[in-house]
């Protein structure tokens, strides 16, 4: 049964503070940014909320700025703005690359980085990038702001530490040292959901994150330690096997995901070798 949209409520805040007050005083409310996931749930009648908070007009949350050494990306920055941003392309090119592989231009024009993070899908294309960049999720409520390291943001399948009165207002990305690498394996060349997505950085100690192979995006800390300590690829792949829990679903199989994750780990290591310090 399709959800009746005329019965859904949308609150229209005039400012971020107004939005935060609405969240506190008039909740529960589901924040709505580019709405790219909303109508699929409406169509299937699986929407678990009837009251929404419209963030789309909160222009200050679209900014992408450099603050000291930290890249700050507003939660409402769209994929298109990430692709176009010189700052993003210079400091975290794999984020622009991930954004380019999200949907077609129509989705890139509407989908936001904050939305990708909040939606908490294990297949979110930008999430492995944010994981290896060791981004900080900036959460704000009426009376406080807190910064949560990306590694601590997800607590389980589609679960995050965000409280109902908080909004994700942006991501802070410290300088990333080393060579960046990204690869999305989707069901086709464009407009596809990831079957495996990997982001990695070859610096003094390697960082590797994978999507679509576990209930949340994951950092491969065991693999990173092993490779950092000079272990061979067989050892690294063996550890990767222990770190991931891929499943069979409509789009792929656990076996395939396991195999491809291992191959891409090797590809990353081979392609970034010789150039690191």
């Amino acid at each position: 049964m399709r959800t009746a949209v005329s019965r859904l409520e949308l609150l229209q805040p005039r400012s971020l503070q107004h939005a935060l007050r609405m969240l506190r005083d008039e909740g529960p409310l589901t924040p709505l940014a580019g709405a790219t996931d909303l109508y699929v749930a409406v169509n299937f009648g699986t929407l678990d909320s009837t009251r929404f908070l419209n963030l789309w007009g909160l222009e200050p949350l679209r900014r992408i700025t450099l603050c000291g050494d930290t890249l700050r990306i507003g939660a409402l920055a769209t994929y298109t703005s990430l692709i176009r941003s010189r700052l993003v392309r210079q400091r975290l090119p794999i984020l622009a690359r991930a954004a380019l592989e999200v949907g077609g231009v129509q989705i890139q024009n509407r989908g936001t980085l904050g939305g990708n993070v909040a939606n908490a899908s294990p297949a979110g294309d930008t999430l492995p990038v944010l994981a290896v960049a060791e981004a900080v999720v900036v959460l704000r409520s009426v009376d406080r702001e807190r910064r949560v390291p990306f590694a601590e943001f997800y607590t389980g399948y589609r679960q995050t530490v965000r409280r109902p009165d908080e909004l994700i207002v942006g991501l802070e990305i410290p300088p990333v040292e080393g060579r960046q690498w990204f690869r999305k394996v989707g069901t086709r060349a464009a407009q596809a959901i990831s079957k495996v997505v990997i982001a990695a950085v070859r610096g003094s100690s390697p960082r590797i994150a994978l999507g679509s192979v576990a209930p949340t995006v994951i950092r491969l800390s065991q693999v990173e330690h092993a490779l950092g300590a000079g272990a061979g690829m067989d050892e690294a792949v063996h550890r990767l096997d222990q770190d991931i829990q891929p499943i069979d679903d409509l789009r792929s199989t656990a076996d395939y995901r396991r195999d491809v994750a291992g191959n891409l780990l090797q590809r990353f290591w081979a392609e970034t070798g010789g150039l690191s310090s």
């Binding site: 949308l10 709505l32 709405a35 790219t36 909303l38 109508y39 419209n54 231009v105 129509q106 989705i107 024009n109 509407r110």
Partner: peptide, 8 residues
């Protein structure tokens, strides 16, 4: 360009 089926 946007998909009008996804825009409130």
């Amino acid at each position: 360009a946007v998909c009008a089926c996804l825009v409130p």
